[in-house]
Amino acid sequence: MALLEVRDLQVNYGLIKAIKGVSFDVNEGEIVALIGANGAGKTTIMHSVNGLISKAGGSVHFAGSDITHTQAHKLIGLGIAQVPEGRRIFQELTVYENLKMGFFIKKSKAEFEMRLEEMYSHFPILKERSSQIAGTLSGGEQQMLAMSRAMMSSPKLLLLDEPSMGLSPLYVNIIFDMIQAVNKQGTTVLLVEQNAKKALSIASRAYVLETGRMVKTGTGSELLGDEEIRRAYLGG
């Protein structure tokens, strides 16, 4: 049984059918990538999985239980954390306070300290800047913070929405190394990316999305070698 099971998902924006019946699975331990051009519906799928926007049809199951209509704030308690598009860190709070927000639903002080140390060891820069206001961090540092904030609750499934957006190649590599590292430690990852090459290079499996429909699926390396995909998404 898949950890995350999305069946015939439909989302409308008014009269516009943005997602027209999308199905996909994320199995435990995988990194699954959703790739596609701007406007293909990647972020819409993310937001309907995490409950921020309502679905017109279809179902979402997580670890066997139906979360189709579960409210967004309850998902983190089930083990789904998200790094939203554009990072969405709390700009006016400090780095430390942001990390604390990621631990909001949990209470154990000892576990908090342990998670905090783990995040600081992944990204020592965050420790250095722990009392700095998060809005003053660079884009790359903010993305590290957003990743760490999501990982604070030790989620089973991490949803990543465009983690490479607006980052320099150096930071893209750092973030993707982190994705692989948390995956090796047992967190399943669903990754939405425009940087298809980068996403496919770390993905166990991937789905290709085009104007609200899944058009192709395969392992990361299969899709990297696919002639059509190369032409459409990888620049030849």
Partner: peptide, 23 residues
């Protein structure tokens, strides 16, 4: 904790929901 959640909600409601805060 509630006070911090209030600051988070006032800054970014959706991000706050993703943290598990009941708006």
């Amino acid at each position: 904790k509630i006070g911090r959640a209030m600051v988070a909600v006032s800054e970014d409601r959706d991000a706050a929901r993703l943290m598990g805060i009941n708006i």
